[in-house]
Computed example of a mutant assay.
Amino acid sequence: MDETRRDRNAEGRAHNARPRDGLGRPLPYGAPGVERQPEGVARAPEETVREAQRLLDAGMPFHAHEVFEDAWKSGPDAERELWRGLAQLAVGLTHAARGNATGGARLLRRGAAALTEFAAAGSGAAVVTSHGMEIGALTGWALGLAARVEEAGAPAVDAAAEAPRLRANG
Protein backbone atom coordinates (compact mmCIF):
# COMPACT_ATOMS: atom_id res chain seq x y z
CA MET A 1 0.00 0.00 0.00
CA ASP A 2 1.22 3.53 -0.76
CA GLU A 3 2.60 4.92 2.53
CA THR A 4 2.28 8.51 1.24
CA ARG A 5 -1.41 8.45 0.35
CA ARG A 6 -3.91 10.41 2.42
CA ASP A 7 -6.54 8.20 4.02
CA ARG A 8 -10.13 9.46 3.93
CA ASN A 9 -13.25 8.50 5.85
CA ALA A 10 -16.67 7.91 4.27
CA GLU A 11 -17.33 11.67 4.21
CA GLY A 12 -14.04 12.34 2.41
CA ARG A 13 -12.32 13.89 5.43
CA ALA A 14 -8.71 13.08 6.20
CA HIS A 15 -8.55 10.12 8.57
CA ASN A 16 -5.42 8.08 9.24
CA ALA A 17 -6.38 4.44 8.77
CA ARG A 18 -2.96 3.02 9.69
CA PRO A 19 -3.07 0.56 12.56
CA ARG A 20 -1.77 1.78 15.91
CA ASP A 21 -0.11 0.18 18.89
CA GLY A 22 -1.41 0.41 22.45
CA LEU A 23 0.24 3.80 22.92
CA GLY A 24 -1.27 5.17 19.72
CA ARG A 25 1.89 5.06 17.62
CA PRO A 26 1.16 4.45 13.92
CA LEU A 27 2.27 1.08 12.59
CA PRO A 28 2.89 0.15 8.95
CA TYR A 29 -0.19 -0.63 6.87
CA GLY A 30 -1.07 -4.30 7.24
CA ALA A 31 0.64 -4.68 10.64
CA PRO A 32 -1.48 -5.99 13.49
CA GLY A 33 -2.53 -3.22 15.83
CA VAL A 34 -4.97 -2.67 18.64
CA GLU A 35 -8.57 -1.90 17.84
CA ARG A 36 -9.08 1.83 17.53
CA GLN A 37 -11.76 3.73 19.35
CA PRO A 38 -14.62 4.81 17.13
CA GLU A 39 -14.66 8.58 16.71
CA GLY A 40 -17.52 10.91 17.46
CA VAL A 41 -19.31 8.67 19.94
CA ALA A 42 -21.62 10.56 22.28
CA ARG A 43 -21.56 8.69 25.59
CA ALA A 44 -23.18 9.45 28.89
CA PRO A 45 -20.60 10.73 31.41
CA GLU A 46 -20.80 7.45 33.39
CA GLU A 47 -20.02 5.46 30.24
CA THR A 48 -17.20 7.84 29.28
CA VAL A 49 -15.51 7.44 32.66
CA ARG A 50 -15.99 3.66 32.66
CA GLU A 51 -14.62 3.18 29.12
CA ALA A 52 -11.69 5.53 29.69
CA GLN A 53 -10.79 3.72 32.93
CA ARG A 54 -10.89 0.36 31.12
CA LEU A 55 -8.47 1.67 28.51
CA LEU A 56 -6.19 3.30 31.08
CA ASP A 57 -6.06 0.06 33.08
CA ALA A 58 -5.14 -1.80 29.88
CA GLY A 59 -2.15 0.52 29.34
CA MET A 60 -3.82 2.33 26.42
CA PRO A 61 -3.95 5.98 27.50
CA PHE A 62 -3.93 7.24 23.89
CA HIS A 63 -7.18 5.41 23.30
CA ALA A 64 -8.60 6.72 26.60
CA HIS A 65 -7.74 10.21 25.33
CA GLU A 66 -9.96 9.59 22.30
CA VAL A 67 -12.87 8.66 24.60
CA PHE A 68 -12.35 11.86 26.62
CA GLU A 69 -12.06 13.85 23.40
CA ASP A 70 -15.48 12.62 22.29
CA ALA A 71 -16.95 13.82 25.61
CA TRP A 72 -15.11 17.13 25.25
CA LYS A 73 -16.57 17.68 21.79
CA SER A 74 -20.10 16.36 22.37
CA GLY A 75 -20.78 17.23 25.99
CA PRO A 76 -22.23 20.36 27.48
CA ASP A 77 -20.17 23.54 27.27
CA ALA A 78 -19.99 23.72 31.06
CA GLU A 79 -17.96 20.46 31.10
CA ARG A 80 -15.60 21.11 28.19
CA GLU A 81 -12.64 21.94 30.45
CA LEU A 82 -13.21 18.82 32.54
CA TRP A 83 -13.11 16.47 29.56
CA ARG A 84 -10.33 18.43 27.83
CA GLY A 85 -8.23 18.27 31.00
CA LEU A 86 -8.81 14.53 31.31
CA ALA A 87 -7.85 14.08 27.65
CA GLN A 88 -4.64 16.00 28.30
CA LEU A 89 -3.82 13.80 31.31
CA ALA A 90 -4.25 10.71 29.12
CA VAL A 91 -2.04 12.16 26.38
CA GLY A 92 0.52 13.19 28.99
CA LEU A 93 0.63 9.61 30.25
CA THR A 94 0.94 8.46 26.62
CA HIS A 95 3.99 10.66 26.03
CA ALA A 96 5.57 9.65 29.34
CA ALA A 97 5.11 5.98 28.40
CA ARG A 98 6.67 6.63 24.99
CA GLY A 99 9.71 8.15 26.73
CA ASN A 100 8.92 11.77 25.87
CA ALA A 101 9.43 13.23 29.35
CA THR A 102 9.20 16.87 28.29
CA GLY A 103 5.96 16.49 26.35
CA GLY A 104 4.49 14.15 28.93
CA ALA A 105 5.20 16.48 31.84
CA ARG A 106 3.90 19.51 29.94
CA LEU A 107 0.59 17.81 29.08
CA LEU A 108 0.16 16.36 32.56
CA ARG A 109 0.55 19.84 34.03
CA ARG A 110 -1.74 21.42 31.44
CA GLY A 111 -4.41 18.82 32.15
CA ALA A 112 -4.06 19.29 35.90
CA ALA A 113 -4.49 23.06 35.45
CA ALA A 114 -7.64 22.53 33.37
CA LEU A 115 -9.08 20.25 36.06
CA THR A 116 -8.21 22.71 38.81
CA GLU A 117 -9.96 25.49 36.90
CA PHE A 118 -12.98 23.24 36.37
CA ALA A 119 -13.19 22.46 40.09
CA ALA A 120 -12.80 26.14 40.93
CA ALA A 121 -15.60 27.00 38.52
CA GLY A 122 -17.98 24.70 40.39
CA SER A 123 -19.24 25.06 43.92
CA GLY A 124 -15.81 26.12 45.19
CA ALA A 125 -15.52 23.58 47.99
CA ALA A 126 -16.19 20.37 46.08
CA VAL A 127 -13.28 18.25 44.91
CA VAL A 128 -15.57 15.56 43.50
CA THR A 129 -17.43 16.28 40.27
CA SER A 130 -20.98 15.22 39.62
CA HIS A 131 -19.46 12.23 37.84
CA GLY A 132 -17.75 10.96 40.98
CA MET A 133 -14.19 11.84 40.01
CA GLU A 134 -11.89 13.20 42.69
CA ILE A 135 -10.32 16.21 41.01
CA GLY A 136 -7.77 16.76 43.78
CA ALA A 137 -6.52 13.18 43.53
CA LEU A 138 -6.28 13.38 39.74
CA THR A 139 -4.38 16.65 39.77
CA GLY A 140 -2.07 15.32 42.48
CA TRP A 141 -1.41 12.18 40.42
CA ALA A 142 -0.68 14.26 37.30
CA LEU A 143 1.68 16.69 39.03
CA GLY A 144 3.49 13.87 40.81
CA LEU A 145 3.98 11.89 37.61
CA ALA A 146 5.13 15.03 35.75
CA ALA A 147 7.83 15.63 38.38
CA ARG A 148 8.98 12.00 38.31
CA VAL A 149 9.29 11.71 34.53
CA GLU A 150 11.38 14.89 34.41
CA GLU A 151 13.98 13.53 36.83
CA ALA A 152 17.33 12.97 35.19
CA GLY A 153 17.61 9.44 33.88
CA ALA A 154 13.97 8.59 34.58
CA PRO A 155 12.84 5.70 32.38
CA ALA A 156 9.67 5.68 30.32
CA VAL A 157 6.74 4.79 32.52
CA ASP A 158 4.57 1.69 32.33
CA ALA A 159 1.23 3.15 31.23
CA ALA A 160 -0.89 0.44 32.88
CA ALA A 161 1.02 0.55 36.16
CA GLU A 162 0.85 4.37 36.27
CA ALA A 163 -2.79 4.70 35.20
CA PRO A 164 -4.77 6.99 37.45
CA ARG A 165 -7.95 5.95 39.21
CA LEU A 166 -10.64 8.25 37.87
CA ARG A 167 -12.81 7.39 40.84
CA ALA A 168 -11.50 6.35 44.23
CA ASN A 169 -14.05 3.53 44.45
CA GLY A 170 -13.99 2.42 40.84
Rank of each mutant, 00 (worst) to 15 (best):
E81S: 12
A137T: 13
R13M: 08
T129C: 04
A44F: 10
R18E: 12
P38D: 14
G122L: 05
A31E: 15
R13W: 09
R8Y: 07
H95G: 00
R6L: 13
E3C: 06
L27C: 00
R8H: 08
P19I: 13
D70T: 02
G136P: 05
R84Q: 15
E39V: 14
A58S: 11
N9S: 08
E47G: 10
R110V: 13
E117K: 11
R18P: 07
E11I: 08
G170V: 08
G124V: 02
E66C: 05
M133D: 01
G111V: 11
E79L: 02
T4L: 10
A161I: 05
G104L: 03
V67S: 00
G30Y: 09
N16S: 11
G104A: 02
E3D: 13
G103C: 07
E11Y: 11
A42N: 14
E151D: 10
A146P: 11
R20G: 07
E79W: 04
G22P: 05
T94K: 00
V128E: 10
H65F: 11
V34N: 09
A156D: 06
F62P: 05
G12M: 10
E35A: 14
A156I: 01
R36N: 08
G40C: 08
V67Y: 01
A58R: 08
S130F: 05
V41Q: 15
R165A: 13
R148N: 04
A114G: 09
L56Y: 04
A101S: 14
H131Y: 12
M133H: 03
A161S: 11
G59F: 04
L115R: 02
A96P: 01
R106D: 14
W141R: 07
Q88H: 13
L56V: 02
V41I: 15
P26T: 14
Q53G: 07
S130C: 06
N169A: 12
R106I: 06
E66K: 00
M1I: 12
R84L: 04
E117L: 08
V149Q: 00
G104Q: 02
K73M: 03
L56K: 00
G153Q: 05
S74T: 15
R20N: 07
V91M: 10
L115G: 04
T48V: 15
M60A: 09
R148A: 12
H15I: 07
G99A: 10
T129A: 05
R18W: 11
N16E: 13
A71C: 07
G85C: 05
A152C: 00
I135R: 03
E51V: 13
L23D: 02
P38T: 15
L89A: 03
L143I: 06
G153S: 07
R98L: 15
A147D: 14
G40L: 09
V41R: 15
R5L: 10
G75A: 02
A44K: 15
A71K: 02
S74Q: 15
V149G: 01
L89R: 02
F62G: 08
M133K: 00
A126L: 04
A163C: 06
H63C: 03
R109I: 09
T116M: 06
D158C: 03
G22S: 12
G40H: 06
G75K: 02
A97K: 03
R20L: 12
R110D: 13
L145H: 01
T102A: 14
G24Q: 12
E81A: 12
P28K: 12
R5Q: 10
D158A: 01
E66N: 07
H15Q: 13
P61I: 00
L107M: 14
A105K: 09
